[in-house]
């Protein structure tokens, strides 16, 4: 079975179009309270670029390509890991009040 597809021409345009609508719909109804974590979260998601950079580096044939590829992977990995850590740290702080109201009243 051959599962190879070429993502050119209209197929690529369809993918781009549907993905663009998906992004629009996801953000469109988000309360402002989550804008920062969500921006940080989407910042994390484009860290997937590290995968493309790995492809470029693994297929590098000259020193120049290796150097650029190395930095590509380095930067991409930083984007992904950093984006994940700060998003998780921010979301960890969002708690509803039912956990708080149980606290002992102050003296």
């Amino acid at each position: 079975m051959d599962l190879t597809v070429t993502l050119t021409g209209f197929v690529a345009l369809y993918i781009f179009m549907l993905a663009a609508f998906t992004g629009y719909e996801i953000i469109g109804r988000v309360p402002a309270i989550l804008h920062t974590p969500l921006m940080s979260g989407s910042n994390f998601v484009h860290g997937i670029v590290v995968v493309g950079a790995m492809f470029a580096l693994l297929n590098a044939t000259s020193t120049v390509e290796q150097v650029i590829g190395f930095f590509g992977v380095l930067l991409g990995a930083g984007n992904a890991a950093g984006g994940y850590v700060v998003t998780e740290r921010m979301l960890e702080m969002f708690k509803p009040s039912d956990k708080k109201t149980g606290e002992k009243p102050a003296k």
Binding site: T6, T22, V45
Partner: peptide, 24 residues
């Protein structure tokens, strides 16, 4: 760049963020 590398994960993730970020 996902299109150039024929990598659907980059294409989808990149475009989702591109449109979400534009809206934001």
């Amino acid at each position: 760049e996902g299109y150039v590398l024929q990598n659907p994960a980059l294409m989808i993730a990149g475009m989702v963020v591109g449109s979400a970020g534009t809206l934001l």
